[in-house]
Nucleic acid binder design. Sequence first.
DNA 1: ATTGACAACCAAAACGTTTTGGTATAAGAT
DNA 2: ATCTTATACCAAAACGTTTTGGTTGTCAAT
Lengths: 340, 340
Amino acid sequence: MVKIVDIAKKVNRSITTVSRALNGYDDVSPKTRELIIATAEEMGYTPNFIAQLLQKKQTKTIALVLPTFSPRFSDPYFSELLAGIGNKAAELGYDLLVSTRAPGDEETAYYKKLALGGRVDGFIVIRTRTNDERIRLLLDKEFPFVAFGRSSFDTKHAYVDEDGYLGMRLIADHLLKLKHQRIACITSSRNFAFTKYRLSGLVEGLAQGGIEMSTSRILEGDLTQKSGYELGSQLLDHEMPPSAIIAFNDLMAFGVMSAAQERGLVVGKDVSVTGFDGIPLGEYSHPPLTTVYQPIYQIGAMTCGMLVKIISKCPLEKEHILLEPTLIVRQSTGEASLNL
Amino acid sequence: MVKIVDIAKKVNRSITTVSRALNGYDDVSPKTRELIIATAEEMGYTPNFIAQLLQKKQTKTIALVLPTFSPRFSDPYFSELLAGIGNKAAELGYDLLVSTRAPGDEETAYYKKLALGGRVDGFIVIRTRTNDERIRLLLDKEFPFVAFGRSSFDTKHAYVDEDGYLGMRLIADHLLKLKHQRIACITSSRNFAFTKYRLSGLVEGLAQGGIEMSTSRILEGDLTQKSGYELGSQLLDHEMPPSAIIAFNDLMAFGVMSAAQERGLVVGKDVSVTGFDGIPLGEYSHPPLTTVYQPIYQIGAMTCGMLVKIISKCPLEKEHILLEPTLIVRQSTGEASLNL
DNA sequence: ATTGACAACCAAAACGTTTTGGTATAAGAT
DNA sequence: ATCTTATACCAAAACGTTTTGGTTGTCAAT
């Protein structure tokens, strides 16, 4: 591997001059600069990244640790988010370090290792928990990060979040307008901060229409299609099955649709199903899915952009961003059927 | 940030001794070691990763550059693969650097920067192209990598690949057994090496049953659900629509199913649809999807494991791994209907 | 002739770690 | 008393870059 000193020898200049020529300082004569640049090119010089980092004390790298409960995860939501973060990072000259850790001690240890070891310049924390140890740690060490999601410390840190409360109110209004009475839902784990917002939006929204969901109609899923299928089956096999099932994400909604269709029900007629997130798959599912759209790709990009500003100590226009979601009505919802 | 020299001062030992104590060398007395470890703990010492790297000349990092044609991608296939690679990497003490680059000059430049800049120890190259510049570059620089997929240079590098030829033969046999005659397919781009294998398996498999696909029944998609929907619509609106449509991945198959169902066709009865890859979504789709299963998660893990062996100069048991896929028959395929 | 300003260059330090090639001391063998 | 061996320790070099704080030489202004 060719290094600066090799170039320096070849052009008979000092290491300093070569470095400064390559980095565009103006205390190098044009001739020398040209010569150095040409020689570097010719010798196939690429700066040693690690050595640069050690000197500059920054890594130009952002960490994203996916909190996965099962090692396998196959959620389009993540690839969409990852693409948003990754592309923005690339655009800003940052690299992205991606890893997975199940919530727990190992996760915290990993955050510590990356942060204190100077491995990365900042974190993007996703799937925030109400009392989030990752956030506590990062706040404590005063390490740059942006959260996608709120937390109990959220006055103290930058975040981007969807307005899940509003999103679910939109769903509730929509179903009320369609005259649904027996409504069930499949929630996500209470560990996730967003569950709280979505659930309260849903409950309050339905209450506006005079509808109260019995706890037997509130089941907790794990955001996978499989869990939507299983819990959906359970709800539909009830003696008084719901006329509408609200899933807390799209993947579970697909599972519910599948369960309904297996029972010969026409989704959107016999039973209405709603999702949440608005992943592209829902556009061409059968029937296309009524859902609450969040611009996941943009959220990723935005979060990353904010983080880079924080890292480079640029002031943020806005520390806390709460995005208004929009309801996308497709064919998976329809008027409450009377025969059920 | 506390560093070795701080500990050294506190315990009145040299930097060398502290370093060696922490790294488990045996030329440190037990008492001193204990003292040093305790002090390090107490002072909250975390080794500076960058400085370690510079010294050790390795990064313990693997690069994965996703070749995305559109910036957004929402494919469960990728998250599954990423999980496999990421978890294996974590297990082996490696970090994963993930980025996206559209195939082209920027992509090659990025590979060069990472490799020659000593940024990573090796690459996982996915979605191989027949004449793959990335592979050519890495071979040329003798930089460690493992490909997921074959290439025209594949005798010279380690790879893991599915046997796409066999996979498609399984599909062909299955459809022939169901007496399908009018068969269409939606392929992936010819740029991808795997397209070639899948296509020839399909064509030869059908030929065995005396069936030749007319070129008008071979359409090229882009692996998205949308493209499956659009091309599927096109095929189904033909005056002599096919009784079976073979999609080159699951996502496109979902799109095709959606298009069929929109036309009032019952998938698995009026028209058969097959996918390829076996992503979890297909298990709970409606109807569940007949597909060729590839253990994507395991492939990711395996690829990563091989790469780490190459990096650490361990001999590989096997340089070239070709995985036998299995056919998963579900309800999206059935006997050819006679009325069409 | 001296001064000041400027252009072009560079030696050495710094970043924080690991590794190399030692030294000093004490205990045991001769 | 001398030699060997083992134990416990350490100074300095190394990794490859950037930055600091200069120096030298030239030219124009005084």
